[in-house]
Amino acid sequence: MEILTEVQANPFVQQLSIFVLAVFIGYYVVWSVTPALHTPLMSVTNAISSVIIVGALIAAGPDVTSISKILGIIAIALAGVNIFGGFAVTGRMLAMYKKKK
């Protein structure tokens, strides 16, 4: 096992691989989005990019008060606006798209 761990790739390289593959997935998935739904696409991408809240949660997590914690709490509130607002407004828009009766 010792020998195997010695040749492990740098974690950055692994993350970069995930990133590059995700860009390709994004490319193909987004081209398949119908142009009629481009506005909801923007609002939902906005909502999901607020998953940045995981970083804010780590910062706000410790019990000790610090500037880092305060920044984290503010970031949670900001991301919270986006998460709730983004998904709610997307849902509201999508509910309006109806087919001919």
């Binding site: 995930i18 990133f19 995700a22 860009v23 994004g26 987004v30 991408t45 906005n46 999901i48 940045i52």
Partner: peptide, 8 residues
């Protein structure tokens, strides 16, 4: 976060 960032 990496995947979401790449998608968006």
């Amino acid at each position: 976060l990496i995947v979401t960032g790449a998608l968006v």
